[in-house]
């Protein structure tokens, strides 16, 4: 357990650095900014107490905010995101599944289910953070375009991170 926590923390720190140093400066075709630091939050075991997930999410969002100079945007998004994590997971897997120690991944859920979960959560996060950043519906079409493009790009990048993780997992 402590090993997985430490591993998650290291991954989180790496992703955080990537997010603030690289991803935040990307605006592909002027519509897509990748968000990858939420990968760890999505991968947290489903049986973790909601309060703990909420606190961890808030802190990680807060850290990203500090480095991105966007106080509150990611903290608020992550807090709401953490509450929605379980319901989305339940929606795809069914309520009766045993959640003990289960961490969402291709190996535990299977590729189609995992991808659905990953994309849904990414889309939710992008909707939250970009919605809060825009904070108005006056340019709704552009906001939707950015949300969709950012979600797709983040999703692809997170799949890449996922394959790297599973690759390194197999080697270690």
């Amino acid at each position: 357990m402590s090993k997985s926590v430490a591993g998650n923390m290291i991954i989180f720190l790496l992703l955080l650095l990537m997010q603030v140093l690289i991803c935040n400066h990307i605006m592909l075709f002027n519509v897509a900014t990748p968000i990858i630091f939420i990968y760890v939050l999505m991968r947290l075991p489903m049986d973790l107490p909601v309060k703990m997930v909420m606190l961890a999410s808030f802190l990680s969002g807060f850290l990203v905010d500090i480095f991105s100079d966007t106080p509150g945007v990611n903290a608020l998004s992550c807090t709401i995101f953490s509450v929605l994590r379980k319901p989305v997971y339940m929606m795809y897997t069914g309520k009766d599944d045993n959640l003990a120690g289960l961490s969402p991944s291709i190996s535990t859920l299977g590729a189609p289910l995992y991808m659905k979960y990953l994309f849904s959560m990414t889309l939710i996060y992008c909707m939250l953070s970009i919605g809060i950043e825009f904070f108005t519906f006056t340019s709704l079409s552009r906001m939707l375009l950015i949300i969709i493009c950012s979600s797709v790009m983040s999703f692809i990048l997170m799949l890449g991170v996922d394959s790297l993780m599973s690759h390194s997992g197999r080697h270690t």
Binding site: M54, L55, F58, G61, F62, D65, P71, G72, V73, A75, L76, T79, I80, I132
Partner: peptide, 11 residues
């Protein structure tokens, strides 16, 4: 947490 975030956001 939401209140803290909102405070940060709006200030």
């Amino acid at each position: 947490l939401v209140l803290i975030s909102c405070t940060l956001l709006f200030t």
